[in-house]
Design a protein around this nucleic acid. Structure first.
Lengths: 232, 232
DNA sequence: TTTATTATTATGTATGTACATATTTTTCTG
DNA sequence: CAGAAAAATATGTACATACATAATAATAAA
């Protein structure tokens, strides 16, 4: 018989994962240092480093220089959500995509949004639209674009190409905040989504930034029954 | 003057990010191969590899062996959600945590859940509870535990320590599915959360697995107003 | 012309070595 | 004994090198 070899970082990761699942290394405990583990598993320290880093990224281990590596006491699981372009999301599921512009034009957002987006009250373009799946309302979009950051948006016609897609292709970006919530449909939202007032709608609110400047704020209200799914 | 140096993978990543944001490399385009980039930036190919891998993980680049690296045409942004233990979530926000067990005992779930969890109808423990924030209902928990996977759960008292915490400490795990949705509160949920019937509640449904066996299914209904936030 | 074989190429990764960096521990100094 | 300085230590990372792997392109065989 031959001794098991762990000569790939994935193999090392899986072996560490096995020991975590088998509770050989328990929550809160320190695990051996990289050099010792590399020695035991018969691979280079860098390989162990790669494996432990992956598990640390996944939230299962906590690592600190000099202090060493310990098993996370409260394994905060991280779920990775994909935020796709709406058209792609619908088409990939095998449905027909439709888009209907409700309105587009200069408008003044409420004070909270002005402050949050750090823009002048007269520098906003509001675009409202509905995205359809097989002809049925799928999600209502209420978007505010900061024209100081994206001046080209003011001369763009959003009746054919959605602001969603246009911005992805033409606006700079760097980071964003996103929030998810449940809300009872307002009269307006219910009308757009062809559902009853008060129906529970899944809402996402996203703000994107380019360096210190806001680019756009968008509020998506999904038709009742929508589920956002992922693996953990 | 000295030529800029990119002798760390973070510096390389930031430089590539800059070129993406400045649209020097446009969506859908190929970027130079690792060796050329390393040559241009004056670092080792492995360093470029590390940087590009990070950007690929983030969804901004698409990489394929031999084919090379291209700028993602549809930059699917990935949001990383942290799924913390409820008690920690509440305590970290500076609130007082409370826990109230509603019921715990053997029960038979509906056929869909039996099938999904691949367990015998008589092998389930159902635990229902409410988690409180400053004494106010925060989230209602409806949990099904597969006793074939976690037999020890049947003799556990969940009146003091929540199933949430007990399972984290005592049950094996490997992966899970999670879904988010909005629902109108049922009479029962409204009662537990002390809100009105029909109020929009944010719901998460999570199933965790250990290898091929299901561990637990939990449905969390958050009190109206709850927002799940993250960065993108 | 079609199919099978074989280079070719870009990314993926393992390794030894060296050094950087952040902490902790120990030792020195006042 | 307190505080500062130095040593020790575990992780973090850069690099040169080598080879693995997957996908493509070029070539040969049917």
């Amino acid at each position: 018989m031959t001794a098991p070899v762990f000569n790939s970082w994935q193999a090392v990761r899986d072996e560490v994962l096995r020991r975590l699942q088998a509770r050989i290394w328990r929550p809160g405990e320190m695990i051996p240092n990289e050099a010792d583990l590399a020695d035991e598993l018969g691979c280079a320290r860098v390989t162990v480093n790669r494996a432990l880093r992956a598990l640390s990224d996944a939230g299962l281990l906590e690592r600190r220089r000099k202090a060493g590596t310990r098993v996370a006491l409260h394994p905060v699981r991280r779920a990775t959500l994909e935020i796709p372009m709406i058209r792609r999301q619908i088409e990939q599921a095998g449905h027909a995509y439709g888009y209907h512009l409700i309105s587009a034009g200069r408008a003044v957002p409420d004070a909270a949004l002005q402050t949050y987006m750090r823009a002048r009250s007269d520098g906003f373009l509001q675009v409202r639209a509905v995205h359809l799946q097989d002809g049925v309302p799928f999600v209502a979009e209420d978007r505010w674009i900061n024209l100081e950051t994206v001046p080209a948006a003011s001369s763009q016609d959003f009746s054919q190409v959605s602001a969603n897609e246009w911005l992805l292709q033409h606006a700079p970006f760097s980071r964003g905040d996103i929030a998810f919530a449940a809300e009872n449909a307002s009269a307006e939202t219910a009308d757009l989504l062809q559902t009853q007032v008060g129906a529970a709608v899944f809402v996402t609110e996203r703000t994107t930034w380019f360096e210190a400047r806001s680019v756009t704020f968008v509020r998506l209200s999904f038709a009742p029954g929508y589920r956002m799914q992922t693996e953990i």
